[in-house]
Amino acid sequence: MSDEMQLVSKVLVLDNSPECFIQIKQFCDQNGLIGLKVTSTNIMAILSAYVDLGAILLSDNYCESQADTLDLAQQIHRARPELPIVLRKTSTSNFDDLPEKQRKLFCATYTIDNMSPLRKVIDEYIFSLVYPNALVRGISELTVSTLENLSTLENRFKHIKVITETPYIVRDRIIFGEVCSLIPLESSWCRGYMMLQTEEGGILDVLGYNELTMNEGPAAFRTVNNILAELTNLLWGAFKTHFIAADDPGPGFASEVPIVINHQHKYISFGSENPHLCFKYILTDENNSHFIPVYQWFAFNLYWSPEDFKEIYASVDDFVDSGELELF
């Protein structure tokens, strides 16, 4: 893996113009965006299938009439208010004549001949936080290593491969799957949470009921909970070892923000408008017959000072002093 890791973000593109879409795709490629073109007419169903978006790009003539386009924007805003909607104005647009309530549905507007407002939105709403390359690269590497090493623990995972996707930024607040874990991260340069999300059924399918319980009967959801808790704890320890020095003084203050979870809507709020750093891993068996998606979020909602981040390079003396390595 290279030292430089380019963060990306997924954006839903609702635009029917083939000519404009070519330019939008070029803009996305040049600015770290993965454009997802929607061809289905059931936009809200498509939207519900994506839980890791950064923004919505909507053309003012996407629907048959401007009224229908505005109605669609209202539906999207109502369902996912955390996602900025950017409107592409056409030459026949009368956006400026709309009531203020409707104009507020959009964080900005742009034209295909002037995409600079879109660039500003990307900087302000998506790539607003700086993440050191060493941190992004290190998190991905240590997580892959931890997932691969998990196969040696109690023989729970056998013949599991780990597939990684490019790290990306999300503004979404929708939780993936049925089970998730949260653990706090605190240091002199950050305060926030690491969150893991996955599907209960996928884990049971890959591992098998007998293997999970050592032939003691069918596994229940508590088995999955225990596995995710074990993985979370291992990753928390690896994060501290690699990125938080033993003599780190800590954040120096103890302010807290409530975390709100709405189970019915699978929604979580960390009390901050900042986007989150996201990693996605796919665990698959040797036959590629089953897949377990694992989403890893980092929400530095309480404190973030990337200029104070330093990667820790452990020496042999450090391991001897800590007792992890013994000379004989």
Rank of each mutant, 00 (worst) to 15 (best):
P167L: 00
P167Y: 00
P167I: 07
P167E: 00
Y168P: 13
Y168L: 15
I169T: 05
R171L: 14
R171W: 01
R171Q: 04
D172P: 01
D172G: 04
D172C: 01
D172S: 09
R173A: 06
R173K: 12
I174W: 05
I175V: 06
I175C: 02
F176P: 00
F176T: 05
E178H: 04
E178F: 14
V179W: 05
C180I: 14
S181G: 06
L182D: 08
L182C: 11
L182Q: 07
I183N: 00
P184I: 01
P184F: 06
P184N: 01
S187H: 09
S188D: 07
S188W: 07
W189E: 03
W189M: 07
W189N: 03
W189D: 03
C190N: 03
C190A: 14
G192Q: 10
M194L: 09
M195A: 07
M195K: 12
L196E: 00
Q197P: 14
E200G: 13
I203Y: 01
I203S: 10
I203F: 09
L204I: 15
L204R: 13
D205H: 13
V206R: 12
L207G: 06
G208N: 10
G208R: 05
Y209M: 03
N210G: 00
E211K: 10
E211G: 11
L212P: 02
T213Q: 13
M214W: 09
M214H: 13
N215L: 04
N215H: 02
P218R: 15
A219M: 09
A220I: 08
A220H: 12
F221Y: 11
F221S: 13
R222K: 10
T223L: 02
T223S: 09
V224I: 02
V224W: 05
N225Q: 09
N225H: 06
N225A: 13
N226C: 08
I227D: 00
L228W: 14
L228V: 05
E230H: 02
N233M: 08
L234D: 00
L235V: 06
L235H: 00
L235T: 03
W236L: 05
G237S: 03
G237W: 07
F239L: 04
F239P: 09
F239M: 10
K240I: 14
T241V: 03
T241H: 05
H242D: 15
I244P: 08
I244K: 08
I244V: 14
A245L: 07
A246L: 15
A246R: 14
A246D: 14
D247A: 12
D247L: 14
G250W: 03
